[in-house]
Each structure stands twice: as structure tokens, then as C-alpha cells.
């Protein structure tokens, strides 16, 4: 039982790591980035390519993945998202174009990795890091799990507090509400958007590296699988709420875990997405999302 709770919490932390950056970008600068999954995958893939040449340890692998993720995300923002946002006639048309742009963008790294790996899984086994399992009071925990728990929950809570309490966090929240008035307040949207994408990309890279260590290998398509779940998590928790991401991650992870523990499996997708529907029926804005309050 304790083992199961620990494992489910680790899974939740993984979801937090992945969904955090995506939620931040969506909730603040208004980009629902469907390329987040491929940034995640491709950062890990670049780290994998490097590790194939030079046997590196975990910190170096993580650093490579984070830098790769940040660079890819910034390039996407600069070359695609920003021009789309600039050209968009109205915010709604812009949103749709951003989603389509993201889907289009995501295909590029995925097909590149698919071709290069022939769609076989890849991992960091050529590196020097070894997974160690420890048994404490009958509960098995690995060094990778410990890192994921600390980093996932730490960054989740840290980011949420930063968004809630810092000046830049406030500016980001304002951007999520009304970009135009935010500009009147002196908030430099393009600069902040670039910084947010950079952070989100680095987080995607971090998640990519840690997940590859945890699952031992991933495939070119792993990012897409997580993307759908992250989408559900963000909606569940409430768009724009970072604490919502943490809550949503725990709900999804524990729901999946419970279903897999007590049924023969086939229901896992139905239950987790059924849960999503249920919550949206009761609270359309998500659990921690704020209802739109607007007067005209």
C-alpha cells in the first residue's frame, strides 16, 4: 500500500514536470503549445545522441536536455508563435492558428527522431548513471524516483509560489487575463513571452531527461502521449493555475493507479477522461480555475 502510494506520487510528479511548462505558457501568454510534447521528446533525444558519443553522468545529461529544450522552445516562439500572434486579426483566430502551428511544428522533431531511431525506443544506457534501488521498511525506492519527487514537487510548488507572489508572476497573470491592458501597464509582452517559453522549454527538457531515466527508454511518440494527459491535467486543475497543475497531476495519477490496481486495465483511459468530463460538468473552469468575471 505504501509502495503503491509512493509509486503513484512519483507518477504525479512526472506529470507535474511535464504539464507545468505547458500550463504556464497557456495560462499566461495564451499559447496552447501542442509542440510541448515534441520539445520534451527531442530534448531527450539530443541528450541521447550526445550520450551515444560521450558517456556522461546524469547532471550533464539533464543540462543538455534542458538547454536543448529551452533553445527549441525559444526558436519556436521567435520563428512561429510570435509572428502568428503579431499577424492575428483577433485573439480567437490567433489561438486557433497557434494550436495548428504547434501541431505542425511538433511533426518536425518527431519525424526526425522516428527516422533516426527507426521508431525504436532510445535511452541513456550509454551514459554512466546507474539506477539504484533501495529498500526501506519493505518499500522499494530508486534514486531516480527520489530525484523526480524532489524536482517535480519542488519546481511545481516553487513555480506556483513565484507566480503567485512575484512581480513578474503578477505580470504573467495579467497577460493571461488581458494582453492589451497589460501592455498599457508597461508589461513588455514579447520579452516576457520569450522568457516564459524559455523556462517552459527547459522544463520540458528536464522532464524529458528524467522520464527517460525513470522509464529507461522512451520513443519518438512518448511526448504525444503525455501531451494529451497534460492537456487533461491543465483543464482539470484550471487553466492558469499552477497549483491546479499539481492537483490535476495527482488526481490523474492516483485515478490511473487505482484503476490499474483494481481492474484488469482496459478502463484506465475511460476512467481518467471520464473524471475529466465529470469535473468539467460540475466546475467548467477546472478545480482551481477562476470563473470569468467580466463586466462590459
Amino acid at each position: 500500500m505504501v509502495q503503491d502510494l509512493l509509486n503513484a506520487t512519483t507518477l504525479a510528479s512526472i506529470y507535474v514536470l511535464f504539464a507545468l511548462g505547458m500550463s504556464l505558457v497557456w495560462g499566461t501568454i495564451g499559447i496552447l503549445n501542442f509542440a510541448h510534447g515534441s520539445i520534451f521528446m527531442f530534448s531527450a533525444f539530443i541528450a541521447y545522441l550526445v550520450v551515444q558519443q560521450i558517456p556522461l553522468g546524469m547532471p550533464a545529461v539533464i543540462a543538455i536536455a534542458m538547454v536543448s529544450g529551452a533553445l527549441i522552445a525559444v526558436a519556436m516562439q521567435y520563428l512561429v508563435f510570435q509572428p502568428i500572434m503579431k499577424k492575428a486579426k483577433n485573439p480567437h483566430a490567433g489561438e486557433l492558428q497557434l494550436v495548428i502551428g504547434g501541431i505542425g511544428l511538433s511533426a518536425i522533431p518527431i519525424s526526425f527522431a522516428q527516422r533516426s531511431t527507426l521508431s525504436n525506443p532510445f535511452g541513456f544506457s550509454a551514459g554512466t548513471f546507474e539506477t539504484q534501488a533501495y529498500t526501506i521498511g519493505g518499500v522499494i525506492i530508486t534514486n531516480v524516483m527520489i530525484i523526480i519527487l524532489i524536482v517535480g514537487l519542488g519546481l511545481g510548488v516553487g513555480t506556483a509560489l513565484w507566480i503567485r507572489n512575484s512581480k513578474k508572476g503578477l505580470a504573467l497573470r495579467a497577460l493571461g487575463v488581458d494582453p492589451e491592458v497589460s501592455a498599457m501597464m508597461g508589461i513588455d509582452r514579447p520579452k516576457l513571452a520569450l522568457a516564459t517559453m524559455l523556462y517552459s522549454g527547459a522544463l520540458a527538457g528536464l522532464a524529458g531527461a528524467l522520464l527517460t531515466y525513470y522509464f529507461n527508454s522512451i520513443t519518438s511518440e512518448s511526448g504525444d502521449t503525455l501531451l494529451l494527459k497534460a492537456f487533461a491535467i491543465i483543464i482539470l486543475g484550471g487553466v492558469g493555475s499552477i497549483f491546479g497543475v499539481i492537483l490535476g497531476s495527482f488526481i490523474l495519477a492516483f485515478a490511473e493507479f487505482a484503476v490499474l490496481l483494481y481492474t484488469n486495465g482496459s478502463w484506465v483511459t475511460a476512467v481518467s477522461f471520464g473524471l475529466l468530463f465529470l469535473i468539467l460538468l460540475i466546475r467548467p473552469q477546472g478545480i482551481l480555475g477562476k470563473k470569468e468575471v467580466r463586466r462590459t
Binding site: R173, A174, V177, D178, E180, V181, K290, V293, R295
Partner: peptide, 8 residues
């Protein structure tokens, strides 16, 4: 239309 940041 004032445009206060309503959720804040």
C-alpha cells in the same frame, strides 16, 4: 469599458 483585470 474600464477593463480591470477581473480575476485579480
Amino acid at each position: 469599458g474600464r477593463r480591470v483585470f477581473a480575476p485579480l
